[in-house]
Structure formats: structure tokens, C-alpha cells
Computed example of a mutant assay.
Amino acid sequence: MARKVSIQVLADELGLSKYAVSRALSGKSGVSEATRQRVIELAKSLGYQKASFSQPSETGREPDAPSPFILICMRHIHSGNHSYWQRVLNGMLMSCDQQGLPYVIVSPELEAAKLTGEPESPQHMLAPHLDWTRCGGIVVMGTFPHSILGLVARAERPYVLVDHVDPLISCDKINNDNIEAGSIITRHLLSLHCTHLGFITDKAWSASFADRLAGARSAMDSPHGTEARLTEWRIPYGEPGWENALYQQFVHTEPDKRPDAWIGANDDIAIRWMRKLQTEGISIPESARIAGIDNVEASTLVSPQLTTVNLCKEELGGRAIEALLRRIERPGAPMESIHLSTRLIPRAST
């Protein structure tokens, strides 16, 4: 007797999830057009009879069955960052709109991950007000503590991390190539014959800061950097007035041990340090060269304009949604760690 052709049979034959096959057969959003056609062709060839094959509507939704939503986790501290995080978020939302996918944005409280003695589910601890039966997948933006990421991992939904890496969490990760960014800006300053580079950073602020410093150090290890040196200047980036404390450290450093070029771990650090030096009578770039990383709009509004490294923002968000849909369609596929390439933008500050 011929076996009954079910959604599970189709999923096994194609290496897809039952969710992806069901969405493809019903014409709903959440799967790529290429995947939809593969599913329909196999269903026809195997004689799948349960339902007719529908094409997606203009909205990608069926009136009697709302599309699953994408849950986007974003920290409150990033919601006001219009130059970077809001642009990454915009890329995600544009991609969701193009796919006809609804979305929900939440900011899981850090306290939610603490042990309370309550037998609550990870889903309830992350977002108790949501209907989790409709959650198709999760995107986690930026740095969250491992305890929060642990809840996401146990929420039984496909998920991806964006602009963050946690070695203890096994999932798809979408990042800018921060190591490349640190290396590019360092090599640029070395090409200008700078002999002592100061890297201003707060490694506790972001994993990307640590990667950028690692990239700078790797460039110093190249033959081009053997006669130059790199020093790390640490700041409490989240606290006001760090520029004044850093300047006091600078003036108490012997003149021959002061950097002749500076790299900010991001553009904001570089701009604030440049302004501090200028108020103290130090001209840029005549007395010191300064560069940043990010290419935010403010880098073109200062004088002199800031040399920087362009990092993709909207593209990073859009790529995250693509990765999540891939994970939904192919749950057994190998995990991916994607790094978007960067680009040097030389300007007058160097």
C-alpha cells in the first residue's frame, strides 16, 4: 500500500520544517518563493491531496489565519540611538513588511532572568503579555546578558542574534565584521606614518568594541606595523564626563609617550574626544589624528569631518530577518555566523 503523503512526509523529503511546508502550501508568508515552488512541485509529484495549493495574497495573509509574528528583542538603552540601532531596527521592519510578516518589539527586563522560585515558562518570563502560539521566531538585537539569552534559547522558537556573539549560545549570528573594521582603520593610520596609536574603548560596553580592538591589534602585528605601537585607553563610556578624566590621564603622560593618533571604538567616542582636545587648544589633524568606527551622520557634521569605517545598519537588520526565515524553513541546516564587510571612509580628521 502506498504511504499516505502528509505534510511531515513532504518536510522530511525536502529537509524543511512542517511549519515551512504548511505555510508554502497555504500561500502564507514566512517562506521564500523558491521554497514555496519546491514544496508545491514535490506535493504534486507525490500526489498530496489534502488541500489546493494557494498563492500568497498581496498582503501575504489569510483572513481566517493571521500570520505568525516575529518577536524583536531590543534593549531600552538602544531605543534612543537613532544613528545606529534605530537604523538596524528600520532594516528589520522594512524586511518584515516586504515579507508580509507582522512583528512585535519588546525589551525583556534583566530582572526577568533571575530565579524567582516560580515555575514560569521562558516565554512568560520574556513577554508574558504575548500569544506565544503565534510567535514564528525571535530576533535579538545587541548585547543582552547570558541569562536573557538562555531564556530565548529555551523558548522553543527559531532565533538569531544581531550584532552580538555569545560563545555559549548556539544559533545563527549576524554581525558587521568588527575585527575587519578595527584592522582597516589601524592600517589607514599606519599608512599615514603614525607611530603611536591610542585606542579609546570600554570593553564592557559591547562585544563589538572588543572585536574592534582585536582587529587593531592584528593590524599592528603585520609587517607594516612593526615600528609603531598601540596602547589601550579605557573609559567608562556609559558615565558622563569621561572625556575630562581621560584628558587628565593624557596630560599626566610624558609627552614622548602620548599617542600621535587616536581611534575611538565608535564615532561618538572619537567625536567627543576630538572636541575635548580642540577645547584644550590641540589642533586636529595637525597635532593629532583622530578616527572612529560606525559612519554615523554626526561624523560629517563635525569640523574637521571624521575619518571612519562604514558599518552596514539597515542591511544588518534586513539580513537578520532573512537568516531567521532560513532557520524557520530549514531548522536542521548548519548554524551560520555571517559578517557583513566594512569600508574605510577617509576624511579630514586624519
Rank of each mutant, 00 (worst) to 15 (best):
A2Y: 11
E13V: 07
G15F: 00
S17C: 06
A24R: 05
Q37P: 14
Q37Y: 08
R38C: 14
L42N: 07
S45G: 11
K50W: 02
S52L: 10
F53P: 04
F53S: 06
S54C: 13
S57F: 08
S57T: 14
E58G: 14
I70N: 02
L71T: 02
I72A: 05
C73P: 04
M74K: 11
R75S: 15
H82I: 11
S83W: 05
Y84V: 14
Y84H: 12
L89S: 09
G91E: 03
D97L: 06
G100P: 05
G100H: 12
S107K: 01
A113H: 03
Q123R: 09
H124T: 14
M125K: 15
D131W: 00
H146T: 14
G150T: 14
L151Y: 07
V152P: 01
Y159N: 06
V160M: 00
L161Q: 11
D166S: 12
I174P: 03
I174L: 12
I174F: 04
S183D: 10
I185R: 01
T186I: 05
R187E: 13
R187M: 06
L190V: 07
L192E: 09
I200D: 00
K203I: 15
W205K: 12
R212V: 04
A214M: 12
R217L: 14
S218L: 15
P223T: 13
A228W: 01
W233F: 08
R234D: 10
G238S: 10
E239N: 09
P240T: 10
E243N: 03
E243W: 00
Q248S: 06
Q248D: 08
T253P: 04
P255I: 07
P255R: 12
A261P: 02
I263P: 00
G264C: 08
N266V: 05
N266F: 12
D268A: 14
I269N: 07
R275P: 00
R275Y: 03
S283M: 11
I284Q: 01
P285L: 02
E286H: 13
R289W: 07
I290F: 09
E297I: 12
Q305F: 09
Q305S: 12
L306Y: 04
C312Y: 08
K313R: 14
L325Y: 04
R327D: 01
A333H: 09
S337T: 15
S341D: 09
R343Y: 10
S349R: 06
S349K: 01
T350W: 07
